[in-house]
Design a protein around this nucleic acid. Structure first.
Lengths: 223, 223
DNA sequence: AATCATATTTAGGTTAACATAACATTTTTG
DNA sequence: CAAAAATGTTATGTTAACCTAAATATGATT
């Protein structure tokens, strides 16, 4: 394993590669790496038995790949918890450092850190922290962008990207908010949503088209 | 900067490249990298203005190189302190993890960590932790192997190498011990020293030839 | 001082991870 | 449904950091 392979694994995992197929383009854009380079690296992951690749169709993770990615997510989120809880980082500042730390974190260090933090179950972004033995509660891979006007949902998870988090922080849009989709502006314009929690009367928020692909939601059961 | 350049800087620093010239061979052996590769990398450090190189004579650090190396040492030692003080690592276990962590530690993280630890001044091995603004107390670069029979000295610093620390732990040879050199066995055999602290009556220790190159001492002023 | 051993540098080759550009396949659309 | 657009793959080139082996310099020994 190399840090780069780890980054690919993690991004495929986060894009939903545990259940669906992820496209080359999604990976290429998320990592900001040329499409050709992605194809190359994916074929190495396939050789390593960590991913499957059907040309022109997409990429998924094998069970082994999933297990590895989960442990990376575990390391990442433990570090985020450390940075916020112990070093007083702000939520929007944690990503870069945690991203680097996770690649150099031995299993012993991971477990010691977890103990030190009181074996937390959730990171500061609301994500579940997988346990050492790989038990992992599934969370949403449904993007806000997939909802239609009138749909109601709860914001379950935010992709861990500094720019995104800063943006959402600015527009005051939080994890756990219950929302109703009001309208989609044309030409990839923003999605207007209404905040449904008690205290926010009729407040609305405009979430950019791009950001809506990095906000994951749990839709309300069909009415 | 890359992690590898950082490793070179740090090793040159630790081998005394702040004041004397360090040989290609010393670097090559310490990092377990072929001599040719060392020449190549050193020439990059020279291009970067971090080191000076006189062919066939040796390598030293520039002021800028020293400053950078000090900050690496600072990061390394802060992590060691964290691992021992907060995560209950044993002294002989800290090196590997700290070595990896130091390369991915931003300045912000370094300072936050230092605050969290109470701005410690010394790492668990007895080394001084340089401050953020580069103030750094010099410590000994005199190796136990350089002493002659009859010399008296205090053990000031141990190179931070797992095998070495495990070995010294086994033979019960500690930081701070005041010693007198009794004899040098021929053919690179062990150096016999006598422990001079009150409670160790006439106790002696045999330190292997190789280990004696990684134990740094402050000799007693000439009598 | 000539020889030999050791240390260092130089030259040429390898690998991982990237890029660009040409080619191939899908998907969209008039 | 054919042409255009988008996406994906293959081929080729680059860079950083390593290696081995050959060439060169230094210093130690007779």
């Amino acid at each position: 394993m190399t840090p780069m392979k780890e980054d690919y694994l993690k991004i495929i995992f986060e894009l939903g590669g545990t259940s669906k197929m992820v496209s080359n383009k999604q990976i290429s854009q998320s990592l900001d790496i040329a499409a050709g380079s992605v194809t190359e690296m994916v074929s190495k992951l396939v050789e390593d038995g960590l991913a499957t690749h059907t040309p022109y169709a997409g990429i998924s993770l094998t069970d082994e790949g999933i297990e590895l990615a989960e442990q990376l997510v575990r390391k990442h989120r433990l570090w985020e918890t450390f940075l916020v809880d112990k070093l007083d980082y702000k939520l929007s500042e944690v990503h870069e450092d945690a991203e680097q730390l996770e690649h150099v974190t031995s299993d012993k260090l991971t477990n010691s850190l977890s103990d030190f933090l009181g074996n937390p179950t959730h990171c500061p972004h609301g994500g579940v922290i997988p346990t050492a033995d790989g038990v992992y509660q599934q969370y949403s891979h449904i993007m806000l962008s997939e909802l239609e006007d009138g749909d109601v949902a709860v914001v379950d998870r935010l992709a861990d990207n500094r720019d995104l988090l800063t943006y959402l922080d600015q527009i005051d849009f939080d994890l756990g908010d219950k929302i109703k989709v009001i309208s989609h502006a044309p030409f990839e314009g923003p999605i207007t949503v209404q905040l449904l929690s008690e205290k926010n009367g009729e407040e609305q928020r405009e979430v950019s088209f791009k950001a809506s692909h990095y906000v994951f939601v749990i839709p309300e059961a069909d009415k």
